[in-house]
Design a protein around this nucleic acid. Structure first.
Lengths: 118, 118
DNA sequence: GTTCTGTTTAGACGTACGTCGAACCATCGG
DNA sequence: CCGATGGTTCGACGTACGTCTAAACAGAAC
């Protein structure tokens, strides 16, 4: 990948025709790929599943870190990826930051990928 | 990721409880992440959309390469990733190899990710 | 057989990614 | 204000990834 990856805003749900609706433009493919990449890591998949189990209250970094057996710095990094892809949202409550899943974003990604969707 | 990634067979459709069904085991998360990673590249997303537009006959490497403006070697590499994730299947016809999409695999991946699925 | 076309593999290069410890920031409680 | 706790950012390290050219491989036609 010699050419630097374009910087694209991925904080909102993905919005373009589904994969199966026809040949995608490079821009749309990039948007989809960036969001997929945000989820394409075992730790982040696991974090998402944990957050989806607690959609209301959310979970803070200090509780997530021991659950995946990684440093808080690393978990914070992963949460940032998820946040920048709009898959997660963090809100501060005192000293803690509680992360909650954004199911709409995940749903939108899912619909774009769905081969039955067009 | 200091520890080498385990080698996992991903040629079949993903098979585990959906993300939203509960907290995932690390193994399941790995299987999901590996398949997502196979699709988490703009070129591969675009290739998938092209193949989905021609599900019956398939498309050969020499026709895909100019469409994404990359060398045949690079496209072959991407197709290998998709093949190893079970998202695509290639069959030789003479000197050409025609690649066809495997919608079941994509569908399975989609269902695992779907936040409404559990 | 040889040659030609299409495909994959091998090797090399630069970039991106996941991880950590340490430093820095934010908020609460004395 | 000060310290303590939770969170993020920074810098560094090793690995993985995308791309290319060149070489090896597979069929088809001669």
């Amino acid at each position: 990948m010699p050419k630097a990856l374009p910087t694209v805003d991925t904080t909102g749900p993905v919005c373009c025709a589904p994969l199966a609706a026809g040949v995608l433009a490079a821009d749309d493919a990039l948007g989809i790929a960036l969001r997929l990449k945000a989820l394409a890591d075992p730790v982040r998949v696991q974090l998402m599943s944990m957050l989806l189990a607690e959609p209301e209250t959310g979970i803070c970094t200090c509780d997530l870190a021991p659950a995946v057996d990684l440093s808080e710095a690393t978990v914070s990094h992963h949460l940032k990826q998820l946040r920048e892809a709009g898959l997660v949202e963090g809100t501060r409550k005192g000293t803690n930051v509680y992360y909650r899943p954004q199911p709409e974003a995940l749903d939108a990604l899912c619909r774009v990928i769905d081969p039955r969707c067009r």
